[in-house]
Amino acid sequence: MTILDAEQGPIDEGLFDPPAGDERGTSLWQGAFRRLRRNPSAIVGAVIVVAFVLVAIFAPVLAPYEPAGTQWISQVTPSSVPGPSPGHLLGLDSFGSDMLTQLIYGARQSLIIGVVSTTIGLLGGAVLGLIAGGLGGWWDTGVMRIVDILLSIPSLLLAVSIAAVMGRNPFAIMIAIGAAQVPIFARLLRGSMLGQRRQDYVLAATSLGLRQRRIVMSHVLPNSLGPVIVQATLVLATAIIEVAALSYLGLGSADPAIAEWGRMLVKAQDRLQSDPRLAILPGICIAITALGFTLFGEALREALDPKSRR
């Protein structure tokens, strides 16, 4: 409370005529971007995320070989897989494909699954949250009870059931992961909107004669999005890990030609003793990517809400 005393009155030298100068004002988004740029962990997170996205997009250019090429299968013996060599910088995998190529194409797969499943969760949750937080009353009670029921189902169980119903289809896994996130996004957006609705500016908008729909959509909603955006970046990280988990449980894509980090981990199981490299490399990829999204998400949280920092 009292430290504010010092912070509220920054001693701006020579600020005779505020607001001084002709420069344009800084909106909250611009201000958040500035804070983000000054935060080292945001930079690190952003570098990892950008690198990951670039690798995923330019996989065909970066990868030394075609994906899922099993032309070196003859070199793989039941007891050993060839390690790094000049031709294969990271060695081969247990199917006789080039490890580096598989990892690069795996990034692509992880990105698609992460983005699509997060989008499913975000959109589904946003719609429910908007109905609950925007309409209020019985709508709110009804929607939130449904969300409570969804929340009470363990997310992995939900994902497994959806994948089981839809079969081993690449979309199943995305829908499964996304659906598990719907109640979380819904709660978050609703809570954030309810908090904003108590602000005086909503009352001011009503007193100005704005229509309820406009107040919700163009005043309450934009101010409530911050925590949702942060959550989305964090969910991207967990989605990538969950894909790995579901693949590990054998629910991933059925097509062995599609490289995917989670399945690479699974396949490495039986050779963990002799060739730990097979598990460690995709593991590192998953960890670093998740770390990148998490760092960036946390930094975004701080940037959007500078007060949360202390």
Binding site: L28, Q199, D200, L203, A204, S207, L208, L210, H219, P222
Partner: peptide
Amino acid sequence: MQMVFQDPLSSLNPRQSVESLLTEPLRVH
């Protein structure tokens, strides 16, 4: 009939520029 609030920070939408704040009532009415 209009209202002036106690706390000007919370009664102004933080994401609206002054121009948007002042023209919004005109866009409505």
